[in-house]
Design a protein around this nucleic acid. Structure first.
Lengths: 261, 261
DNA sequence: CATTCAATG
DNA sequence: CATTTAATG
């Protein structure tokens, strides 16, 4: 769940959502804060173990993992030196599962930020493969949750034609995500899409501009990518699109999956 | 009247205040906007002629003059090249009167901004003398209105002891303002103080921090400095301290004088 | 269009 | 502590 600033999200209802959540694991992106900036009951909510990977630059990025049981291990970053302090990747080992919170750079065509996104993608795919192999050797499934900032296919955003040249739906980005999901390469499964193969969306992000949310002009860029063994256990997956504009506490909505294990 | 951002002031009631104002001339400081950023009825209110001197840097400073009758001439700046595009000085000729809107730099001890304030003061005092002489030769009185960012005497701020080392109440700043008001040098009269010689304040600025406004912990730094002929015609002078915090639309309050001419 | 930040005040 | 901008999204 990309909270678009945890401090702002708290003011608008994040804690109510969390209190009502039945989840065992919650992955946050765009926390955009450090511990000193938030009350303890936000940073370490009662009933949860919390791990954070803040960005070195104040007010930027930042990912977190909230788990009901204490992880056996927590690791920040995925090996690429450039992104170690960028607040974009955090993983934790739980019994039989490695779960990760990912915030892939959003990019902007023709800028250095797009080049950064591409460097991230280039380094991250081989890591995903190693992660899967390592986890398999340890008897663990893997679930990488977060804001991938890429819509894979035309069904994953409302206006795919108008967005063909835009960051998030570039051919090279879509191809890269295809490799992540290719059984012969990345080997991950898009859990929500696997359960809803023929649906438009469900979208998980809507621009704040115009009437994007009201018109459901959104993108499905928040993905839960799991190893096939885990993905096969998914029995339900859904996006918590807020019923009203007043209830929105981020420009993203929570994406949830339920596993029967 | 320092509006602390005309766009913010509009949202909080500036236009209501202006509509109710009986003034012939209104001097604004810290407009912090250019024409394109505001609706026409704010930038050029019905019934007023408006002249602006915006700062070259976006969102900074900016002074304005609203006059019920059209000025015979409008001039931006006071001759100092450094401050020409700084949005800090604007004057207009009306029949028998030159009126100016001034926003003197606020300064901060030990910083370049304090050095800038001092350069402004050094260049501005001789200008004030020339202005008075030129106006006298043309049969005009002078009134320089605005945020001088200096409290002249102990009665001009609530906590003068605690502020002895702070910008706005430094000995050299107070001495400089004394020279502006010295009959033998600047030759200007502090119109409000002349009518209220024995009063604490009246303050015209209160910090947004703490309870400064509620406790009237303010500063009298917004001055109307006039040539003696004009100052002698002042029959009333007052600060419109808002009755409640909700009515405040700036951290300053309007300072008004009524002249019988 | 919303969230941060830094600079200014 | 409020207003702006800039960068980011």
């Amino acid at each position: 769940m990309n909270v678009n600033g945890l401090r702002a999200a708290v003011k608008k209802g994040y804690l109510d959502w969390l209190a009502a959540s039945p989840a065992d694991v919650v992955c946050l992106q765009e926390v955009r804060a450090v511990e000193e900036q938030l009350p303890a009951d936000v940073w370490r909510p009662a009933g949860w173990h919390a791990a954070y990977a803040p960005a070195a630059v104040k007010g930027r990025a930042g990912v977190a993992l909230l788990t009901r049981r204490e992880p056996d291990a927590v690791r920040v970053g995925f090996g690429a030196e450039e992104f170690l302090g960028s607040g974009r990747y955090l993983e934790a080992d739980l019994p039989g599962l490695t779960v990760a919170s990912l915030y892939l750079p959003s990019g902007e065509v023709g800028t250095e930020r797009q080049a950064e996104k591409e460097r991230f993608m280039a380094a991250f795919l081989p890591y995903l493969v190693r992660l899967r192999e390592r986890a398999a050797a340890a008897g663990r499934e893997v679930l990488v949750c977060g804001d991938w900032n890429i819509a894979h296919r035309e069904a994953d955003l409302r206006n795919w034609r108008a967005n063909r040249g835009n960051a998030g739906f570039l051919p090279e980005e879509r191809a890269w995500l295809g490799r992540v999901l290719d059984p012969a390469e990345g080997g991950y499964t898009d859990v929500v899409r696997a359960l809803h193969p023929d649906q438009e969306g469900p979208y998980s992000w809507w621009s704040y501009r115009g009437r994007a949310f009201d018109n459901d002009t959104g993108w499905r860029i928040d993905l839960l990518c799991g190893t096939p063994g885990l993905a096969g256990q998914a029995v339900k997956a859904y996006v918590e699109r807020a019923a009203s504009h007043a209830e929105r506490w981020s420009d993203h909505a929570p994406v949830t999956a339920v596993f029967d294990r």
